[in-house]
Design a protein around this nucleic acid. Structure first.
Length: 398
DNA sequence: GCGACAG
DNA sequence: ATCTTGTCGC
């Protein structure tokens, strides 16, 4: 996040976003989408554009020398799920390992993020990159050996007015291979509505079919790609994604990486991003049940429960809570370990560490967190809660 | 004046 | 990102 500090972004955040001095500088006149957007000054936008142009000059839209797609072992997926009506969100990183033609989830980590700045088309990086950087740092701290060979980012790479979307931005800043995967077409001067319309009208009848996104200038911004054979419920049978190289990839390889992440009968979105999306939603669902009556630390507990416990362990803990339901327990610390009729190992490894971490958690909050539905994370190796620290990511297997 | 504009 | 509605398939 240091680069944001050097831009003065964090220092200005409270001024511009909270609106205290919004009137002191001229508000933007273009791209105004809502009132919050108006609190970002045109000067600030120019600075961000300048940063994007500078990063663009360092973007490598070709494959690394000596590297091919066959060298791909692990693929990361980054996505952010939002709590409705607030600035809070859950950012999720998952890592999948390629095993034959299967993708196996091996790592998952979620963090709570405060979206301090508004969404402005073309400037997604401002909102999302700080969270991605935190997830990257936690990955390197807790499981450096599972760092992915490529990160799939929910957003664009080269397919961007300044050819530097959030996927490229993140990749260039940290010298990572990245690919941008967007669900919607982005239109701008060189790739206007007419170009967009032409692309939308192209029929991509078979999975793997694609059509290039060519601007007026002739520049190829990426591809519209038909990924899935299955029709998502209620959705168009031919839903497509808009793939563009982020960093250290050719457009062609970027497209192939996304196709490689397509699961038979699965979503039109590549699996790692889809899993990150599902986890973010599961966490937001759990928080929604308690957010009106709970403190922010309860939200952190939900993140930790998601990161540190697998489905099996959460179910075991729910069963323990059911056992002691007869006693009037207000908070977790009021349950005595002796009252639990379980194996000593279960108490030692699961219950007591949880009790130590969240002594003040109420039964309601704990149930909301433990009943989180993440069926895709089943059959994964147990993590040792006792030796984990709150706020740390869980290695799910291998 | 309104709509469009990755998430 | 968020909401909705209708439709198909198990």
């Amino acid at each position: 996040m240091s680069y944001l500090l050097s831009l003065g972004l964090l220092g200005h955040r409270s001024v511009f976003w909270r609106g205290a001095c919004a009137a002191a500088t001229r508000p933007v006149t273009e791209h105004v989408q809502n009132l919050e957007t108006a609190s970002v000054t045109s000067f600030q936008l120019k600075e961000w554009e300048c940063l994007q142009k500078s990063l663009r000059s360092r973007l490598r839209d070709w494959d690394d020398e000596g590297w091919t797609i066959d060298d791909l072992r692990r693929i990361g997926g980054l996505d952010i799920g939002f709590e409705d009506g607030t600035n809070r969100a859950t950012a999720v990183l998952v890592v999948c390992e390629l095993r034959g033609c299967h993708l196996k989830l091996i790592y998952e980590d979620s963090v709570d993020v405060d979206m301090a700045l508004p969404y402005i088309s073309g400037f997604l990086f401002v909102r999302e990159i700080p969270a991605y950087e935190l997830l990257l740092q936690r990955l390197r701290d807790s499981a450096p050996d599972v760092e992915p060979d490529v990160f799939l980012v929910d957003g664009s790479g080269l397919f961007h007015p300044r050819q530097c979307g959030s996927a490229s931005h993140f990749g260039i800043l940290h010298n990572l291979r990245t690919v941008g995967v967007a669900k919607k077409l982005l239109c701008f001067e060189d790739f206007d509505r007419e170009h967009g319309q032409t692309v939308e009208e192209k029929v991509l009848s078979r999975p793997g079919d694609s059509t290039p996104l060519v601007g007026t200038s002739g520049f190829i911004y990426g591809f519209a790609v038909r990924t899935s054979a299955a029709r998502a419920k209620g959705q168009d049978s031919s839903r497509r994604v808009y793939v563009s190289a982020g960093h250290r990839f050719s457009q062609d390889t970027a497209k192939n990486v996304v196709l490689m992440c397509n699961v038979e009968g699965g979503s039109y979105m590549p699996e790692p991003i889809r899993l990150a999306d599902l986890t973010g939603r599961a966490i937001e669902r759990a928080w929604k049940q308690i957010h009106s009556t709970s403190e922010p630390q309860a939200r952190q507990m939900i993140m930790d429960v998601s990161n540190l416990l697998d489905d099996k362990q959460r179910k075991t803990l729910v069963a323990i809570l059911d056992e002691v339901e007869a006693e009037p327990c207000a908070v977790l610390s009021s349950i005595s370990a002796d009252s639990i009729k379980r194996k000593q190992a279960t108490k030692d490894e699961l219950f007591e560490p949880l009790q130590d971490m969240y002594p003040d958690a109420t039964m309601l909050e704990l149930r909301a967190a433990l009943k989180m539905e993440k069926p895709w994370a089943t059959d994964l190796r147990k993590a040792s809660l006792r030796h984990q620290q709150a706020g740390r990511a869980m290695r799910l297997s291998r």
